[in-house]
C-alpha cells in the first residue's frame, strides 16, 4: 500500500525522500549554482577568464559570476597562468585563507604542468603543492573549456556525500 502511494506520487512528479536527503539536495543545489570564483590570474589565462565572465560567454548562466577578489569570500579558486617560485607561497597562503568548502580549477597548461616554461623559477604544476579538482587543457583554454570545467565542478559537488 505504502509503496504504491510512493510510486504514484513519484510518477506525478512529487519529491519523495527523507528530510536528511532533502536537506542534502538543497545544500548541494545552493553550492553548485552559486559558486563564487576567486581568479588567481598571473598571465594570459586570466585574460581569457575575463572573456568567459563577460557577456559573450557569460558564466552567470551557471551561477558563477560573482568574482571575489578576497579569498575569504570565495569558494572556487581558478589558478590561471604561470606560477613562479616566488608566487607559490602566496598561492598556498591564499588557498589556506579560503573557507571550506572550496574547489580549485587549474586553468591552462602553465598552471597544470608548467607549460613550455621548464626552468628553475617555474612551478611544474600547482597540483604538486595544492589540491586541484579540475584541470583545463589549452594555452590558453577556450571559454567553452572553462564553462565545461565549471560544469565538472558542479558535477563533483553533486556527487559529494554531505551527511
Amino acid at each position: 500500500m505504502g509503496v504504491d502511494i510512493g510510486r504514484q506520487l513519484r510518477q506525478q512528479g512529487y519529491i519523495l525522500g527523507t528530510v536528511k536527503g532533502l536537506l542534502e539536495r538543497m545544500v548541494k543545489l545552493g553550492r553548485k549554482n552559486s559558486l563564487w570564483p576567486y581568479v588567481f590570474g598571473t598571465a594570459c589565462c586570466s585574460i581569457e577568464m575575463m572573456s568567459v565572465l563577460s557577456s559573450r560567454y557569460d558564466l552567470a548562466r551557471f551561477g558563477a559570476e560573482v568574482i571575489r577578489f578576497s579569498p575569504r569570500q570565495a569558494d572556487l579558486m581558478i589558478v590561471g597562468g604561470r606560477v613562479t617560485l616566488k608566487m607559490m607561497p602566496v598561492l598556498q597562503r591564499i588557498w589556506l585563507q579560503m573557507a571550506e568548502p572550496k574547489w580549485c580549477i587549474s586553468m591552462g597548461a602553465c598552471a597544470s604542468c608548467g607549460g613550455v616554461f621548464d626552468t628553475y623559477t617555474m612551478i611544474q604544476g600547482v597540483d604538486k603543492f595544492i589540491p586541484v579538482d579540475v584541470y583545463v587543457p589549452g594555452c590558453p583554454p577556450r571559454p567553452e573549456n572553462m564553462v565545461d570545467a565549471l560544469l565538472q565542478i558542479q558535477k563533483k559537488i553533486d556527487a559529494q556525500k554531505l551527511l
Binding site: 617560485l85 598556498q92 621548464d118 626552468t119 628553475y120 611544474q124 604538486k128 595544492i130 589540491p131
Partner: peptide, 20 residues
C-alpha cells in the same frame, strides 16, 4: 647554473585536501 634549478621549484610544503 642548471636550467631546471637545483630543486628549488620542488621545495614547497604539500597542502593536501585533508589539511587545508
Amino acid at each position: 647554473y642548471p636550467l631546471r634549478g637545483r630543486g628549488e621549484r620542488d621545495s614547497f610544503p604539500v597542502l593536501t585536501r585533508e589539511e587545508s
